[in-house]
């Protein structure tokens, strides 16, 4: 792992904080249906679901996409940014997953204006050309503008995703705080190797083939009683 400047570390912590006002906490990405349908019953089940999804799904599609986007933002390759943004939207498996990334992308994009940081000017104008903005597209642009190195940024992205999933599990299963911290410790350990793979995975090997996850996300749309928007 490269040494991160203190400022870059601070920026990363701001980006991965649950305090980032994008509403991530309102989404469970199918986890709520996985609980409702009995796929997740306890701490072990939650850890298996989140860990597997990170290993086989998020870590093999979203994470390498974020890594690629950071590289393209760093050199201002707007054609590739637009292509990957459109590909990510087309890869969303359900209506709620698509709505989620658009809402979070919209909110983070709006935050850019509020930050009043001249370092973000290029990012703002780059995003202005996109008709619809996926969350990873803006997030990776911020990581690039704030000069967080790619590997650390992808580690942070995966961590923020995993933390949000664990928080969803605490409410949906439900689980206690100690369970949550045990899960975070376990999942945290899995993040660095998944991020390392994501950084070198060629696009031809990216994979969003996780059909049971896709089914749960679609099933969630008709779940009778629910806390989350996905």
């Amino acid at each position: 792992m490269t040494t991160l400047s203190s400022l870059a570390l601070i920026r990363l912590m701001q980006l991965v904080s649950p305090a980032l006002p994008v509403g991530a906490y309102t989404y469970s990405q199918g986890l709520e249906w996985a609980v409702e349908s009995g796929r997740i019953r306890d701490e072990t089940g939650a850890g298996a679901w989140i860990g597997d999804l990170m290993r086989h799904g998020i870590g093999r599609f979203e994470a390498p996409l974020v890594a690629a986007l950071i590289r393209h933002w760093s050199v201002g390759n707007s054609a590739e940014i637009a292509r990957l943004n459109a590909d990510f939207l087309a890869s969303r498996e359900s209506a709620e997953l698509r709505a989620e990334t658009l809402q979070m992308g919209f909110s983070l994009n709006r935050l850019l204006a509020d930050l009043r940081d001249p370092a973000l000017d290029n990012l703002r104008s780059g995003l202005a050309d996109l008709p619809e903005i996926a969350f990873p597209t803006v997030w990776s642009g911020l990581a690039a503008a704030w000069q967080i190195d790619r590997q650390t940024a992808v580690v942070g992205y995966l961590w923020a995703w995993a933390e949000n999933q664990v928080m969803a599990a605490l409410k949906a299963v439900p689980l206690g705080q100690a369970s949550g911290q045990r899960l975070l410790a376990e999942l945290g350990q899995a993040v660095p190797p998944i991020a390392a793979t994501a950084l070198t995975l060629p696009e031809s090997d990216w994979s969003n083939l996780t059909p049971a996850f896709a089914l749960c996300c679609a099933r969630h749309e008709t779940q009778y009683s629910r806390l989350f928007r996905s």
């Binding site: 996985a34 679901w49 999804l53 890869s91 996780t210 049971a212 749960c216």
Partner: peptide, 24 residues
Amino acid sequence: QPLWLERGRIEGADPMLASVAGWA
């Protein structure tokens, strides 16, 4: 403009095939 994209690679005995979030 892409409307749909699904891609990936399944290895023989891939742990993803047994995973609850994968092929279950």
